[in-house]
Amino acid sequence: MKKILVLFLLVSFIVKAQVYEVLVETKHKIDYTEKGLEFFKNIQDPEQRKWNIEQNSNPPALDFKIYSSKTEQNTFEQEKINNEQEYKGSIKKSVPGLSFGYSYTSFSENANYLPIDIYGKKYTIKSDLKKLEWNFTSKTKDILGYKTYKATTKFDKFDLEIWFTKDIPFNFMPANIQPIDGFVLEMNYYIVHEVGKINNFVRVQSLKEIDKYKFKKASNAPIITEEDSEKLFEEANKKRNEMYNNNNDVDKK
């Protein structure tokens, strides 16, 4: 009887997966140069031009809720509703490595699956988690009561710094990047470009370990690459423009 009880407890321990629920805030910001502001000079209405500059340089922050285990991860964009009467709408901008909507990551496959819709046709973009070479430093700072360490690397054209802690016994990365040995609580992507300084921030707002979570996997839609999706969008936009021009020609006759 004791052996059965011990076996049951052992099986229960194995079945229970460690899952963290993490809320992160992301922010995209551009400090435009005079050359960067030239992009908006064709907008004649001063108020409309001012709105476009503000929305592109300082769009509203986006929140994501992430569920992560040692084998898989879900990322969900959190919908925000603005009920202000004078609200004119906003331009959404995410940060590198985090996409709108939801995505599913399989760490065993080292892959991320992102469902997309191209004018009514559904696809799933499969992309590899980026493997980066990190420079670990001795610099530290306190985040959410945890002692964190700074590491730096390159992410495409961006300089990237992260702040991670060893105080949480779990490897967590809030982006489509291979996790490091540690729990990342903050990410800063930045680049100085001729249009201005571009900053992208990812900051953990809260985290907790939860008992149960059923991961939402990728749909059965056709799997394509990021390059395929760009071609499909380009083709779809070309067809829509041709239809629009043809209809205008009919109206003129």
Rank of each mutant, 00 (worst) to 15 (best):
P60Y: 03
P60L: 04
P60C: 09
P60M: 05
P60R: 06
P60S: 06
A61W: 00
A61R: 01
A61L: 01
A61Y: 00
L62N: 08
L62T: 09
L62D: 01
L62M: 10
L62H: 01
L62E: 01
D63I: 01
D63W: 00
D63A: 09
D63P: 01
D63Q: 14
F64W: 05
F64S: 03
F64A: 12
F64C: 09
F64Q: 02
K65H: 03
K65Y: 03
K65A: 10
K65F: 02
K65M: 15
I66V: 14
I66E: 00
I66T: 10
I66H: 03
I66A: 02
Y67F: 15
Y67L: 12
Y67E: 01
Y67N: 05
Y67H: 07
Y67Q: 07
S68V: 07
S68I: 01
S68A: 15
S68M: 03
S69I: 09
S69H: 10
S69P: 14
S69M: 11
K70M: 09
K70A: 13
K70V: 12
K70C: 01
K70H: 11
T71K: 08
T71G: 00
T71C: 00
T71R: 04
T71L: 04
E72V: 03
E72G: 07
Q73H: 09
Q73N: 08
Q73Y: 04
Q73C: 13
Q73A: 11
Q73E: 13
N74K: 07
N74F: 03
N74T: 06
N74H: 06
N74Y: 03
T75I: 15
T75K: 00
T75S: 14
T75C: 10
F76Q: 10
F76R: 07
F76S: 12
F76T: 12
F76N: 10
F76P: 09
E77I: 09
E77M: 15
Q78D: 03
Q78F: 00
Q78I: 15
Q78M: 15
Q78S: 08
E79D: 13
K80V: 12
K80T: 13
K80L: 10
K80S: 10
K80P: 00
K80A: 05
K80F: 09
K80E: 13
I81L: 11
I81P: 01
I81Y: 08
I81G: 02
I81T: 13
I81Q: 07
N82W: 00
N82S: 09
N82Y: 02
N83Q: 07
E84R: 11
E84V: 05
Q85S: 14
Q85N: 13
Q85M: 14
Q85A: 15
Q85V: 12
E86K: 13
E86W: 06
Y87E: 08
Y87D: 14
Y87P: 07
K88V: 07
K88W: 11
K88S: 13
K88C: 04
K88R: 14
G89Q: 05
G89I: 05
G89V: 09
G89A: 02
G89T: 03
G89Y: 00
S90Q: 11
S90E: 12
S90M: 11
S90K: 08
I91P: 08
I91G: 06
I91A: 11
I91V: 15
I91E: 08
K92E: 13
K92M: 12
K92F: 06
K92R: 13
